[in-house]
Amino acid sequence: MEVNLAINKKPLTLNLKGNETLLEVLRDNLSLTGTKTACQESECGTCTVMINGKAILSCITLAANVQNQAITTIEGLAEGDVLHPVQQVFIEHGSVQCGFCIPGMIMSSVALLEKNPTPTQAEVEYALDGNICRCAGYPKIFEAVHDAGKKMKKS
């Protein structure tokens, strides 16, 4: 079947079977491997992308079911060589340990901060409750989210 997707502001038409998850299409068809694959059962959050500004799990999303919606992956955040403020702040705060959860963490953080750039700590934890960090690096991640919100508000 012909499937029309809008990924990182680029319209694409793909010929799919219909049973592909969005995660499979991103990684296997489009080589957008920034979106990670881990549990594949909606528990870990590494496959988080944004659809219409909301964080969703690409491992339990059928690609053909999200046609013509604005899909944003970690690769779509930077503007050329300029990182998104959340990406930049994650580097500055040393929020990355093994790094595997980070694309998902960043996508959830961007979705939160675009809606609410000055979240409370409880709001940050609530928004990121679907993203698991095996390194338990949460304090540095939370610090970065607060700081990124301030920078996004200023700009």
């Binding site: 079947m1 079977k17 219909g18 049973n19 491992c59 053909a64 079911n65």
Partner: peptide, 11 residues
């Protein structure tokens, strides 16, 4: 593939 073959209907 994570899923078996299927036919998706989109009313």
């Amino acid at each position: 593939m994570l899923l078996n073959p299927l036919t998706l209907h989109l009313p």
